[in-house]
Design a binder for these strands. Structure first.
Lengths: 256, 256
DNA sequence: AGAAGGACCAGTGGTCCGTA
DNA sequence: AGAAGGACCAGTGGTCCGTA
């Protein structure tokens, strides 16, 4: 049975100072590469339906708040509640999780990475610089079963915006909450301000991630990389002003 | 049929200025972790003998110098000549390759990596910082069929010594040539001065590799990492003098 | 015996799609 | 319909061991 650690307590606050600025945050503005479909079907080579793990208990709509004990023997783990768009400091009600909690998960992963790194150094093994499968495995063994790779990878760029421009991120959250948009729409909208940040900084999204102490441990999402690339190559021909590396006549592809 | 490039010409010179200094280079000095066996048998899960590619031509001892054409149609590629211990500047005679040529292969891999990086940047794909499988594949497609992963990984630490302390590397080559040692013995002997360098610099062998512009693109070999770790943990209790991070009483394991 | 390298394998990065 | 995450898969890092 896995070791339980202190990180399993549910999220409790982390309210941030209210903001006012907006930048280019809100809106699902149509043009450019934003229209590109995010999913393309890929053949899996698998035949027949994918088998599923059997689950003992199947509480479809139970009321117990202690369902997330972390490694409680015999009790089958349930899915996390879905995220909803919340303002900074707002705690989600009902069977929902807020976005401060989402971002808190990224901080927890960072703590787990640091622990994995310390163990690796002690043992003289190679030391990960990013959140790898090994870190997710460690988190699970440590009792943080609510952390998993697909979820964390899915929202990395949202966390990136939170790290790189917290005020824009907060403004976007407020705007999407007010409009009653769902999490998927908010998540999609997080790409655009990030691409704008990349444009301002010379398009090197990897360098932007790596330069940030908390963001640098996350792989740049493929989709974000693609969007930056598409936008750099004239997808929005009205190229922005202060590009650092002389890319004025930037219709032709260039190395960074 | 693969594209042929200019790098396939055989190695021709690269002589370096003669050196005199020796440091702790020569000798196969017995104590400490140097005794640890380098190979441990590992079960492969494979049953029966491993199948081999069929080879059309089987010239066991032919005399043609043009056997390495690189992608010459119909002509089956032969193995590279084995390495022998040569002094700096010395060209191996007969069906042998010298160590300057070995190190030249590392420089070629660096060139291939740079090309792969440039392509990746142009395409907006993720950009490798190390010599990966992708780079070896690219080298092969570019006609450098004499470059392969097992060989390059096998001698990485020899190249590391060449990069980090060329004079010690040169002295070691001269000493082992004079003693008539084979390449395997020379290769083994390259570990010791590297561990000494690591000791002087606070034991962080990854940082030492990464700080060097040509060495930083190579993964630290497992064996070198293990030797540094073993030595740091008192394998040679007469711990050396100028360790940077205060590790004076270093019998107990410590993070870097 | 000494050495080069094809080919294997455990575990990775990435994310699809059956599930709730 | 919207979302969480088990599980899959192509390609990786690492190096063994059949081969010459």
């Amino acid at each position: 049975t896995p070791r339980i650690i202190d990180l399993n307590s549910r999220f409790l606050g982390l309210s941030e100072e209210p903001v006012q600025q907006d930048k280019e945050a809100a809106g699902s503005g149509g043009g450019g590469p934003w229209e590109v479909a995010e999913k393309k079907k890929k053949q899996r080579g698998r035949k027949g339906p994918r088998p599923r793990k059997v689950v003992d208990v199947n509480l479809e709509d139970e009321n117990d708040d202690d369902e997330y004990g972390g490694g409680c023997g015999g009790m089958e783990r349930q899915r996390e509640h879905p995220f909803i768009v919340t303002e900074p400091g707002e705690v989600a009600r009902g069977k929902k999780n807020g976005l401060d909690y989402l971002f808190h998960l990224y901080e927890q992963c960072r703590d787990f990475l640091i622990q994995v790194q310390n163990i690796a150094k002690e043992r003289g093994e190679k030391c990960p610089t990013k959140v790898t499968n090994q870190v997710f495995r460690y988190a699970k063994k440590a009792g943080a079963s609510y952390i998993n790779k697909p979820k964390m990878r899915h929202y990395v760029h949202c966390y990136a915006l939170h790290c790189l421009d917290e005020e824009a991120s907060n403004a976007l959250r407020r705007a999407f909450k007010e409009r009653g948009e769902n999490v998927g729409a908010w998540r999609q909208a997080c790409y655009k301000p990030l691409v704008a940040i990349a444009a301002r900084q010379g398009w090197d999204i990897d360098a932007i991630f790596n330069a940030h102490p908390r963001l640098g441990i996350w792989y740049v999402p493929t989709r974000l990389r693609q969007l930056c690339h598409a936008e750099r190559n004239g997808a929005g021909a009205a190229a922005s002003s202060s590009v650092s590396a002389g890319a004025e006549h930037s219709v032709i592809l260039k190395p960074y």
